[in-house]
């Protein structure tokens, strides 16, 4: 039996067709190394993220998350729900909290769920994978398992918004969270603690609808990483990762910059530090190759 077991809400980022998804593949490798078992919530649905609100008002949105929690309670009873996507975690946890506070809404949601033959008890903690690493495993235990320290790799920890606010990680501040830096240090890398853009918003879903405005912010996020001498950026958030990595060409054209900054996940750092190869760490999924990690992974 695995040391840790959770009910897993993968979110749209890791549907089976997304076999090249670097988050999912590296999370799988990481979990193998850490003896963590993830039991996928059967038939989970999209939570509508933070952008569906325009057409999906409160009750429909909360119902979407309630359905996932109800399915989890049915199939994986007694297991905490764990999400790897910041927006998934936020929507689900927020829904769960609101349904605790608002009895009327709880009744309404169960009326809606009955249409799908489901019932919500709402007694399941909803957690982020970062919490599992920090609280259930811990930095010391993480450091113990390192086989290939990330020596000499300078890494800017980009926490972003929704992994950090409104819930955040217990004991960390909203304005200057340090857990990514601690994680990098545990893996033997050089954490850039003074990376001032660590909680700057990247625009989120507005990177699609307001590209110029969002790219201005993304430009600042990358520029600050260069100013701090970073070799790469690490983030826990799939949307942050995509937003900061994939528009660099466009940003270079717009700002006459020469950015080529790799943006990786914590799960890729852990996979490499634990001795997994480039493929297992999904480094081949990067648009901008993380060369220093590839060298270590071999």
């Amino acid at each position: 039996m695995a040391k840790h077991e959770y009910s897993y809400y993968p979110g749209c980022s890791s549907q089976s067709g997304a076999s090249s998804s670097n988050l999912m593949r590296s999370v799988n490798s990481m979990c193998e190394e850490l003896d963590v078992k993830l039991n996928e919530i059967p038939d989970w649905n999209c939570c509508s993220a933070s952008i569906g609100y325009g057409s999906g008002s409160v009750l429909p949105r909360v119902s979407l998350s309630a359905r996932n929690i109800a399915l989890s309670e049915e199939a994986n009873p007694g297991q905490d729900i764990v999400a790897t996507c910041a927006a998934c975690w936020l929507s689900t946890k927020e829904a769960s909290e609101r349904l605790h506070e608002d009895e009327g809404m709880f009744k309404d949601v169960n009326t809606a769920l009955a249409e799908a033959n489901l019932k919500l008890n709402n007694n399941t903690p909803v957690r982020h994978m970062a919490e599992v690493l920090i609280e259930d495993i811990g930095f010391d235990a993480l450091a113990e398992g390192v086989k290939k320290p990330l020596e000499g790799v300078k890494i800017a920890g980009y926490v972003g918004c929704q992994t950090n606010r409104p819930f955040g990680i217990a004991g960390e501040s909203f304005e200057n969270p340090k857990y990514l830096d601690k994680l990098v240090s545990s893996l033997g890398g050089d954490a850039i603690e003074s990376y001032e853009k660590k909680v700057q918003c990247c625009g989120g879903a507005l990177a699609f609808s307001e590209p110029e405005k969002s790219q201005e912010m993304i430009h600042g996020i990358i520029e600050a990483a260069y100013d701090n001498g970073a070799d790469m950026i690490v983030t826990p958030c799939p949307l942050c990762q995509a937003n900061v990595e994939i528009y660099q060409d466009e940003i270079n054209a717009r700002y006459n910059s020469k950015f080529e900054m790799p943006v990786v996940y914590y799960s890729q750092l852990i996979s490499v530090a634990y001795g997994r190869n480039s493929k297992d760490a999904a480094l081949d999924g990067q648009l901008i190759k993380a060369k220093k990690l590839e060298e270590i992974a071999g």
Binding site: C12, A18, G52, A282, G285
Partner: peptide, 18 residues
Amino acid sequence: FWNNMMKKGRVNELKLGL
């Protein structure tokens, strides 16, 4: 986004990092 998601219950695949 909402209408698309409602058609299948999931937002069409988000292939991260690509």
